[in-house]
Structure formats: structure tokens, C-alpha cells
């Protein structure tokens, strides 16, 4: 069996005395599309944020392509440049155009020259259907448009793994569709992804594996069919039944 892209061993995270993640073991194989579901506060977002070290884990290790990632700024930054992240609140650079948002990482982190970076940016802005807006500032775009630019920005780093932290939670229902369509097309193109989401139908449809988190642990995981149609744990059934009703 091939080496997993990402391996999380015994990951712990506490905020003060409140333990958010408890001894998490988690692996991502190349080409997988993993959805992480669970109630708010179950630790899904914290898991993603610990994986790319936006939060410093309290314990455990993260192994990327066989090498443990150290907390030294240089290692950490290199690791982050290989792992893309799309946020709930977009976090586009407010002082830059859509195009510049996409080129800046490739230029100053990826050490590409201006032409190469721009070519990449144009390519991925086209993938997300935003190249017409490349001169617009984030403040001039709608939520769905911002999120699509944010996805293009992450893609411009040509990451080995792309993580989404509730990418549609800040969007109105109409915009959710346009963003999910982009993510779906990326899933089909074979990019390795981890998606934290509350869109159950979407998770069921595009994932190769679904992870259900509850109270800081991974309670249950498996194929979408397993988790959605045949959950083993009471808690998982309870959680999913609420979505069915709704």
C-alpha cells in the first residue's frame, strides 16, 4: 500500500481546560475526497486548523508525505504551501485584485516568475468561472464569487492536498450551489480533498470517505453508503436523522 499523503497521529488540542480534539488518528490517501461531518463544536474545523497549524496542536504529530512536520516556521510554511486551505470567511487579501490574490502565493512562495504565476492564475480563475472578474477587488464581489476566487487562490499553489473549512456556511442558498459546483468539478478531476461541511447531500454524493466527528473524536467513518445508510453508532444515527427530517 502506498504511503498516505497525510497522517495525523494522536492529535490533541485544548483551549485552556477545554479539550477540543482527543487523540485523533486520521489518514488521507492520494486521490481521496473526504468529507468531515458532525455538529458544530465537535472539532471538525479545529481538526483542519490544526492540520495546517493555524492552531498549534497540544499534542501528537502530523506526518506529511512520510515526514513529520516540525513547528519551525520554515518547515511549517513549506508544508502549508503544499496543503491548500479554503476558509468559511474566504480570507481573500482585501488590498489585491482577484488576479493578484491568486498570483501572489505562486510568486513569493512558489518562486514562479510573473508570467508563470499569471498563467496559473488565469487558468484556475477560469476553472472556477471567475476570470471575467480578475480585476475586481474582494469587496466588489459577492460571497459566492469571493469563495470561488479563494478556491482559485488555493489551486494556484498546486497543492497536494486541498482542505475546505465549511466553504459554503457563510453563503446564501443560491451561492452555495455555484461553490459546490466548483468543488464537485475539482473532486472529479482527482484532487485530494478534505471537506468540512454541513451539506449532507453533497458529502454523500462526492466523497470517497465520510468521517463523522463527535465531541472531539472520530466516532465513525467509512464509505458514504456506510455512514449515511448504515451507521453503526447511535450518535451518528441521531445526527443524520435530524438532517433527514430537515
Amino acid at each position: 500500500m502506498s504511503e498516505p499523503i497525510l497522517k495525523v497521529n494522536h492529535l490533541e488540542k485544548s483551549f485552556g481546560t477545554h479539550q477540543v480534539l482527543k487523540d485523533i488518528d486520521f489518514e488521507v490517501e492520494k486521490g481521496e475526497v473526504i468529507s468531515v461531518i458532525g455538529t458544530s463544536g465537535s472539532g471538525k474545523s479545529t481538526l483542519l486548523r490544526c492540520i495546517n497549524m493555524l492552531e498549534t496542536p497540544s499534542g501528537g504529530e502530523i506526518v506529511f508525505e512520510g515526514t513529520p512536520v516540525s513547528y519551525r516556521p520554515k518547515d511549517k510554511n513549506h508544508f502549508r504551501s503544499r496543503v491548500g486551505m479554503v476558509f468559511q470567511s474566504f480570507n481573500l487579501f482585501a488590498n489585491m485584485s482577484a488576479l493578484k490574490n491568486c498570483t501572489i502565493g505562486a510568486e513569493i512562495v512558489g518562486k514562479k516568475n510573473k508570467q508563470e504565476a499569471e498563467a496559473l492564475a488565469r487558468k484556475y480563475l477560469k476553472v472556477v468561472g471567475m476570470s471575467a472578474y480578475r480585476n475586481a477587488r474582494p469587496s466588489q464581489l459577492s460571497g459566492g464569487q469571493k469563495q470561488r476566487v479563494a478556491i482559485a487562490r488555493a489551486l494556484c499553489m498546486q497543492p497536494d492536498l486541498l482542505m475546505f473549512d465549511e466553504p459554503t456556511s457563510a453563503l446564501d442558498p443560491e451561492m452555495v450551489g455555484e461553490v459546490l459546483a466548483v468543488i464537485r468539478s475539482l473532486a472529479e478531476s482527482g484532487i485530494t480533498m478534505v471537506i468540512v461541511t454541513h451539506e449532507m447531500m453533497f458529502a454523500k454524493e462526492i466523497s470517497s470517505r465520510v468521517v463523522f466527528m463527535d465531541a472531539g473524536i472520530i466516532l465513525e467513518q467509512g464509505t458514504p453508503d456506510h455512514v449515511f445508510n448504515n451507521p453503526q453508532k447511535e450518535r451518528t444515527k441521531e445526527f443524520l436523522s435530524r438532517y433527514r427530517q430537515g
Binding site: 495546517n52 502565493g105 499553489m157
Partner: peptide
Amino acid sequence: EGGQAVGMS
């Protein structure tokens, strides 16, 4: 965080 996510120092 947006900057950190693309690996900027």
C-alpha cells in the same frame, strides 16, 4: 490566515 494558508512567512 489567508497568507499563512498559502505558505507565506
